[in-house]
Protein backbone atom coordinates (compact mmCIF):
# COMPACT_ATOMS: atom_id res chain seq x y z
CA UNK A 1 0.00 0.00 0.00
CA UNK A 2 1.46 3.35 -0.90
CA UNK A 3 2.06 6.26 1.42
CA UNK A 4 -0.61 8.59 -0.04
CA UNK A 5 -3.25 5.91 0.46
CA UNK A 6 -2.23 5.47 4.08
CA UNK A 7 -2.52 9.20 4.68
CA UNK A 8 -5.96 9.62 3.09
CA UNK A 9 -7.29 6.47 4.75
CA UNK A 10 -6.09 7.41 8.22
CA UNK A 11 -6.99 11.07 7.98
CA UNK A 12 -10.43 10.94 6.36
CA UNK A 13 -11.87 7.61 5.24
CA UNK A 14 -11.12 5.57 8.35
CA UNK A 15 -10.99 8.53 10.70
CA UNK A 16 -9.71 7.27 14.02
CA UNK A 17 -12.56 8.78 16.04
CA UNK A 18 -15.52 8.93 13.68
CA UNK A 19 -15.10 5.59 11.93
CA UNK A 20 -12.85 3.48 14.15
CA UNK A 21 -14.11 4.66 17.53
CA UNK A 22 -10.69 5.04 19.10
CA UNK A 23 -10.02 7.88 21.52
CA UNK A 24 -13.68 8.60 22.24
CA UNK A 25 -13.04 9.63 25.85
CA UNK A 26 -10.80 12.65 25.07
CA UNK A 27 -12.94 13.35 22.01
CA UNK A 28 -15.97 13.89 24.24
CA UNK A 29 -14.09 15.26 27.21
CA UNK A 30 -11.74 17.85 25.71
CA UNK A 31 -13.84 19.15 22.83
CA UNK A 32 -15.54 22.04 24.59
CA UNK A 33 -13.19 24.72 23.29
CA UNK A 34 -11.25 25.11 20.06
CA UNK A 35 -8.08 26.23 21.90
CA UNK A 36 -7.91 23.19 24.19
CA UNK A 37 -8.66 20.93 21.23
CA UNK A 38 -5.53 22.21 19.51
CA UNK A 39 -3.42 21.42 22.58
CA UNK A 40 -4.84 17.94 22.97
CA UNK A 41 -4.49 17.23 19.26
CA UNK A 42 -0.84 18.33 19.19
CA UNK A 43 -0.03 16.23 22.25
CA UNK A 44 -1.66 13.16 20.67
CA UNK A 45 0.20 13.54 17.34
CA UNK A 46 3.46 13.89 19.30
CA UNK A 47 2.99 10.89 21.60
CA UNK A 48 1.46 8.69 18.90
CA UNK A 49 4.46 9.15 16.60
CA UNK A 50 7.02 8.41 19.31
CA UNK A 51 4.95 5.49 20.60
CA UNK A 52 4.75 3.92 17.12
CA UNK A 53 8.51 4.32 16.68
CA UNK A 54 9.26 2.52 19.95
CA UNK A 55 6.59 -0.17 19.68
CA UNK A 56 7.73 -0.96 16.13
CA UNK A 57 11.34 -1.39 17.26
CA UNK A 58 10.39 -3.38 20.35
CA UNK A 59 8.00 -5.68 18.50
CA UNK A 60 10.38 -6.48 15.66
CA UNK A 61 13.65 -6.64 17.56
CA UNK A 62 12.63 -7.92 20.99
CA UNK A 63 9.24 -9.67 20.97
CA UNK A 64 9.64 -11.29 17.54
CA UNK A 65 13.25 -12.31 18.23
CA UNK A 66 12.32 -14.17 21.40
CA UNK A 67 8.95 -15.42 20.01
CA UNK A 68 6.97 -13.85 22.82
CA UNK A 69 4.48 -11.91 20.67
CA UNK A 70 1.76 -12.82 23.17
CA UNK A 71 3.36 -10.29 25.54
CA UNK A 72 2.44 -7.54 23.05
CA UNK A 73 -0.42 -5.90 24.96
CA UNK A 74 1.40 -5.74 28.28
CA UNK A 75 4.66 -4.46 26.73
CA UNK A 76 2.99 -1.83 24.57
CA UNK A 77 0.91 -0.33 27.37
CA UNK A 78 3.94 -0.15 29.64
CA UNK A 79 6.02 1.44 26.87
CA UNK A 80 3.33 4.04 26.22
CA UNK A 81 2.85 4.81 29.92
CA UNK A 82 6.59 5.29 30.45
CA UNK A 83 6.97 7.29 27.23
CA UNK A 84 4.31 9.72 28.37
CA UNK A 85 6.16 10.16 31.65
CA UNK A 86 9.51 10.66 29.93
CA UNK A 87 8.09 13.09 27.39
CA UNK A 88 6.57 15.06 30.25
CA UNK A 89 9.89 15.26 32.13
CA UNK A 90 11.92 16.17 29.03
CA UNK A 91 9.45 18.81 27.89
CA UNK A 92 9.48 20.37 31.32
CA UNK A 93 13.31 20.71 31.18
CA UNK A 94 13.85 21.51 27.51
CA UNK A 95 10.89 23.58 26.47
CA UNK A 96 8.85 25.14 29.26
CA UNK A 97 6.50 26.98 26.85
CA UNK A 98 5.63 23.75 25.04
CA UNK A 99 5.21 22.04 28.41
CA UNK A 100 2.86 24.83 29.46
CA UNK A 101 0.81 24.22 26.35
CA UNK A 102 0.74 20.40 26.30
CA UNK A 103 1.52 19.48 29.91
CA UNK A 104 -1.97 19.06 31.27
CA UNK A 105 -3.01 16.82 28.38
CA UNK A 106 -0.12 14.38 28.65
CA UNK A 107 -1.32 12.32 31.64
CA UNK A 108 -4.69 11.88 29.89
CA UNK A 109 -2.99 10.27 26.92
CA UNK A 110 -1.87 7.09 28.70
CA UNK A 111 -5.44 5.85 28.79
CA UNK A 112 -6.24 7.18 25.33
CA UNK A 113 -6.98 4.01 23.45
CA UNK A 114 -6.15 5.70 20.14
CA UNK A 115 -2.42 5.58 20.97
CA UNK A 116 -2.36 1.88 21.89
CA UNK A 117 -4.81 1.13 19.08
CA UNK A 118 -2.65 2.81 16.45
CA UNK A 119 0.43 0.94 17.64
CA UNK A 120 -1.38 -2.42 17.47
CA UNK A 121 -2.96 -1.70 14.06
CA UNK A 122 0.43 -0.74 12.60
CA UNK A 123 1.77 -4.13 13.72
CA UNK A 124 -1.19 -6.17 12.46
CA UNK A 125 -1.07 -4.40 9.06
CA UNK A 126 2.62 -5.34 8.76
CA UNK A 127 3.63 -1.74 8.11
CA UNK A 128 7.35 -1.05 7.79
CA UNK A 129 8.94 1.66 9.91
CA UNK A 130 8.25 4.54 7.49
CA UNK A 131 4.65 3.46 6.86
CA UNK A 132 4.12 3.01 10.56
CA UNK A 133 5.31 6.55 11.33
CA UNK A 134 3.30 8.08 8.47
CA UNK A 135 0.27 6.16 9.72
CA UNK A 136 0.77 7.46 13.26
CA UNK A 137 1.12 11.08 12.16
CA UNK A 138 -1.93 10.97 9.89
CA UNK A 139 -4.00 9.21 12.53
CA UNK A 140 -3.02 11.88 15.05
CA UNK A 141 -3.95 14.60 12.56
CA UNK A 142 -7.25 12.84 11.88
CA UNK A 143 -7.91 12.86 15.62
CA UNK A 144 -7.10 16.58 15.78
CA UNK A 145 -9.38 17.29 12.83
CA UNK A 146 -12.32 15.49 14.43
CA UNK A 147 -11.66 17.20 17.75
CA UNK A 148 -11.55 20.67 16.16
CA UNK A 149 -14.75 20.14 14.17
CA UNK A 150 -16.51 18.90 17.28
CA UNK A 151 -15.25 21.84 19.37
CA UNK A 152 -16.45 24.32 16.76
CA UNK A 153 -19.92 22.79 16.79
CA UNK A 154 -20.05 22.58 20.59
CA UNK A 155 -19.12 26.24 20.99
CA UNK A 156 -22.21 27.07 18.91
CA UNK A 157 -24.32 24.48 20.71
CA UNK A 158 -23.63 26.23 24.02
CA UNK A 159 -25.86 29.07 22.87
CA UNK A 160 -28.87 26.95 21.99
CA UNK A 161 -31.65 25.69 24.24
CA UNK A 162 -31.04 21.95 24.41
CA UNK A 163 -33.72 19.94 26.29
CA UNK A 164 -32.58 19.06 29.81
CA UNK A 165 -32.31 15.29 29.36
CA UNK A 166 -30.34 15.82 26.14
CA UNK A 167 -27.68 18.06 27.66
CA UNK A 168 -24.13 16.85 28.02
CA UNK A 169 -23.24 13.47 26.54
CA UNK A 170 -26.46 12.66 24.64
CA UNK A 171 -26.39 15.73 22.40
CA UNK A 172 -22.62 15.44 21.96
CA UNK A 173 -22.92 11.83 20.83
CA UNK A 174 -25.72 12.60 18.40
CA UNK A 175 -23.68 15.48 16.97
CA UNK A 176 -20.74 13.10 16.60
CA UNK A 177 -23.10 10.78 14.73
CA UNK A 178 -23.88 13.53 12.22
CA UNK A 179 -20.15 14.23 11.80
CA UNK A 180 -19.49 10.55 11.28
CA UNK A 181 -22.24 10.45 8.65
CA UNK A 182 -20.57 13.35 6.83
CA UNK A 183 -17.19 11.58 6.95
CA UNK A 184 -18.69 8.49 5.30
CA UNK A 185 -18.84 10.63 2.17
CA UNK A 186 -15.05 10.36 1.92
CA UNK A 187 -15.33 6.62 1.31
CA UNK A 188 -14.89 6.93 -2.45
CA UNK A 189 -11.59 8.84 -2.20
CA UNK A 190 -9.36 5.77 -2.23
CA UNK A 191 -9.27 2.95 -4.83
Amino acid sequence: MDIVNIIILALLVNNVVLAQFLGICPFLGVSQKISTSFGMGAAVVFVMTIANLFTYLIFNFVLATFHIQFMQTITFILVIASLVQIVEIILKKVSPPLYQALGIYLPLITTNCAVLGTAIIAITQNYNLVESLVYAISTGLGFTLALLLMAGIREQLELTGVPKAMRGFPITLITAGMLSLAFMGFAGLVK
Binding site: R167, F169, G177
Partner: peptide, 20 residues
Protein backbone atom coordinates in the same frame (compact mmCIF):
# COMPACT_ATOMS: atom_id res chain seq x y z
CA UNK B 1 -20.55 4.10 12.47
CA UNK B 2 -23.02 7.06 12.70
CA UNK B 3 -25.68 4.70 14.03
CA UNK B 4 -23.45 3.80 16.96
CA UNK B 5 -23.18 7.42 18.11
CA UNK B 6 -26.88 8.11 17.61
CA UNK B 7 -28.07 4.94 19.38
CA UNK B 8 -25.85 5.51 22.39
CA UNK B 9 -26.84 9.19 22.49
CA UNK B 10 -30.54 8.38 22.71
CA UNK B 11 -30.03 5.61 25.27
CA UNK B 12 -28.09 8.04 27.47
CA UNK B 13 -30.88 10.56 27.12
CA UNK B 14 -33.43 7.99 28.30
CA UNK B 15 -31.10 7.11 31.17
CA UNK B 16 -30.95 10.79 32.19
CA UNK B 17 -34.76 10.88 32.24
CA UNK B 18 -34.97 7.64 34.21
CA UNK B 19 -32.40 8.78 36.74
CA UNK B 20 -34.08 12.12 37.35
Amino acid sequence: PPGAFITLGYIMMLMNKLKS
